[in-house]
Design a binder for these strands. Sequence first.
DNA 1: CCTACCGATCGGTAGG
DNA 2: CCTACCGATCGGTAGG
Lengths: 196, 196
Amino acid sequence: MARPKAAATPNRRLQILTQAASLFRSNGFNATTMRQLAEQLGIEAASLYNHISSKEELLREICFNVANEFNTQLATVQLQELSPLQKLEAILRFHIGMLLSRPDDVYVSNRDWKHLKEPWLTNFLTQRRQYEHQLADIIQQGIDRGQLRPLQPPVAVLGLLSAVRSIEYWQRSKRPIGGTQAVDDLITLLLKGVSN
Amino acid sequence: MARPKAAATPNRRLQILTQAASLFRSNGFNATTMRQLAEQLGIEAASLYNHISSKEELLREICFNVANEFNTQLATVQLQELSPLQKLEAILRFHIGMLLSRPDDVYVSNRDWKHLKEPWLTNFLTQRRQYEHQLADIIQQGIDRGQLRPLQPPVAVLGLLSAVRSIEYWQRSKRPIGGTQAVDDLITLLLKGVSN
DNA sequence: CCTACCGATCGGTAGG
DNA sequence: CCTACCGATCGGTAGG
């Protein structure tokens, strides 16, 4: 009676999602096949569809999970009484923390969102635009108070967020970059870059 | 006798390459089909193979063309008598110039190199590692001379190069970012970030 | 440069 | 969760 593998663990769906993020990250969304994903989990491709409804649904869940986390943190920061520079630091550190703790999810959501279908594609992009707009506002406030350099806020926002993503490559070398010092160095580079 | 379309222009291959870069950029390498590419050029998919030997060959040519340009410029800068900071500025400005003048090629070579086949994949990655190593050396020299902040050079290299790529998103908003001022703002952000 | 076509592979379904 | 399978589509070739 006992089924040797594929126990009906309730978080089977979570396992699928985790493996999908890992494969999407290494091979890209399109280059990842449902057969590869199934093989990683020790089941047949057809069996995946008892837990999910489509390949795109996996991508959708990854992207919106990540987006929700970033939105929630930003909302929290906005409620705190911090200077623009302090808010910026808290946000950048959160981005770095996400990249370090959930690299697959964040990486996939940053790169493969293009393959979302409507209406989710539009929804995702709208959320991201609003997020970046809030960051630009924080920077503008810092400039107005003389705390930050008079840079065009959209240029600074994109530059900062893009630089933070360089963490993706920290694992690449023989002796991997990392540790508290590396994080602080990156933060220093960015905050000194915008500060007056 | 006159063929109405598809004149035997000698740079037909160049047209294919240009269109391929454009499609690869918008849709990704895997999601771009040879039928799409052919349609853009007004010919049948099979006809492409009179000018190229495979889809991957297109990617290969894009990636190595870009790599060659960056390597050549770096070699030139290294021969000039400039301070580390001046070298850095020249290099970053060249990156920005490439992103602005040939966005499709640079974008594709930055993202889709994963789909290169061996031995080109290894060759490409080796070239890139050597390029980044040279940048790290320049930064280390700047630190030794007290001109730059004591940041871990690999962290700074990846952060700077990644930030420069944010230019890819400058076209995205309603009133696109751009112009000399935007470039100078980005340069300021980065150079002030690393300078002592 | 085209017509005709192929083997491979894909995401997904039927039915148990 | 599996076997069996399908329609669609892909990169590429044969032969002109």
